[in-house]
């Protein structure tokens, strides 16, 4: 599967969820392991709620990190989602 379409709405795949723990780190649970997420990875993934489109996620990230050029953020989001999709953690 190629990079996500800007209009698709990514969500966590079946069998993947956030662990209840709180703090600066959040843990994403999936069948064969868990990811400790901080920073942008966490911010992108927290927006994968099946409501927001990829484009919206990019826009929101851009608004938050005003420094980044638009192309780079878009690419980063798209690469990150693609790799998680291959791991069967995100669907879009």
């Amino acid at each position: 599967m190629p990079a996500p379409d800007p209009n698709s709405k990514p969500r966590l795949a079946a069998g993947c969820r956030w662990a209840e723990a709180n703090g600066s780190e959040r843990m994403l649970m999936f069948p064969e392991g868990a990811l400790r997420l901080q920073g942008t990875g966490r911010e992108i993934l927290e927006r994968c709620d099946g409501q927001r489109s990829v484009q919206q996620i990019v826009d929101e990230m851009q608004a938050q990190y005003k420094t980044g050029e638009s192309g780079r953020i878009e690419q980063e989001v798209s690469k990150f989602l693609e790799s998680l999709q291959q791991k069967r953690i995100v669907d879009f």
């Binding site: 795949a13 079946a14 069998g15 993947c16 999936f30 069948p31 069967r88």
Partner: peptide, 13 residues
């Protein structure tokens, strides 16, 4: 059973 499992929202290996 595999076809049945796919109808539920759980991860399947």
């Amino acid at each position: 059973l595999s076809r049945l499992i796919r109808q539920f929202k759980i991860a399947f290996t």
